[in-house]
Amino acid sequence: MAICIQSNQEYRHSKLFSIWRGIRRNTLTVIGFFIVTLFLLMAIFGPLFVPYDYAEQNIEKRLQPPSAEHIFGTDEFGRDVFSRVVVGSRNVFIVAGSGAALAVLLGLFLGLVSGYWGGLLDDVLMRLMEVMMAIPGLLLAMLVLFSLGSSFYSVILVVGFMYIPVVTRVVRSVVLDIKTRAFVEAAKLRGESIGYILFREILPNVLPHLAVEGSMRFVYAIFMVASLGFLGLGVQPPAPDWGFMVSEARPFFSVAPWVLFFPAASIAILVVGVSFVSDGLRRILLPGGVSSDRYA
């Protein structure tokens, strides 16, 4: 059913504005964006303003409850928990962010190629992706990091590789849908090159899905990085890896629960926040347009 619109169209809002409007509309999305912005600012500017060096030990003052001097208390070595949480946020964003970005970029490329060409290439790639997905992620990560040694870069690589299959499959399914559309056929009729068709015709229509999926991968990546950190496979101490902080704090839980609470809460809140953002993006960017224009 095509709905005719009057010819004197009202001002067409810019894309960003419609996204902003879309965000405003849903409380959860607003909360999500607020949380993410807060943590992002913390990651970028926080380390410049923290009251203590994250590695500074003060054994006499160990396991102190939150106070004016140490708003999140101190840990088993007398280090300021607040400073460690703030500095640790940078690690989370960089490592999880880079991992997710890696997955998105490679997944985009593979999905485009696989979806558009189909045939044997598609079959082989998809079987490969399925094999990768069949192996439990955490175990695979542990295996790789044990053998390669865990460092900043190896964790990013592992996290990135783990999520390539999902992104590939999403992109591929979108491409499969779009490549049958008339405007792609019109492009073929014009004799456009494959590059043009893939990157100028198909890709812009894949981007909304990619944004949504990418944000979802970021959620998983944060959690994965925290889990690896918990197992001691993240960055090495005394670097403030939130997951490792939780693991270190566990024996003291009955005596000094704040040491565990703050990093764990940070992980949880950030994950929930990004998750809300992802849901919000899904609502706004898909399926096409701001929904107030539609009525049955």
């Binding site: 590695a55 500074e56 030990q57 054994i59 070595f77 001691g232 090495q236 101490p237 005394p238």
Partner: peptide, 21 residues
């Protein structure tokens, strides 16, 4: 290891910690 690393900083020794299961 963590405590020792901090103590060694004072004499200019930089210790890199590698935790292993």
């Amino acid at each position: 290891a963590v405590i020792w690393k901090e103590q060694m900083k004072d004499i200019g020794v930089d210790v890199d910690i590698q935790l292993v299961p």
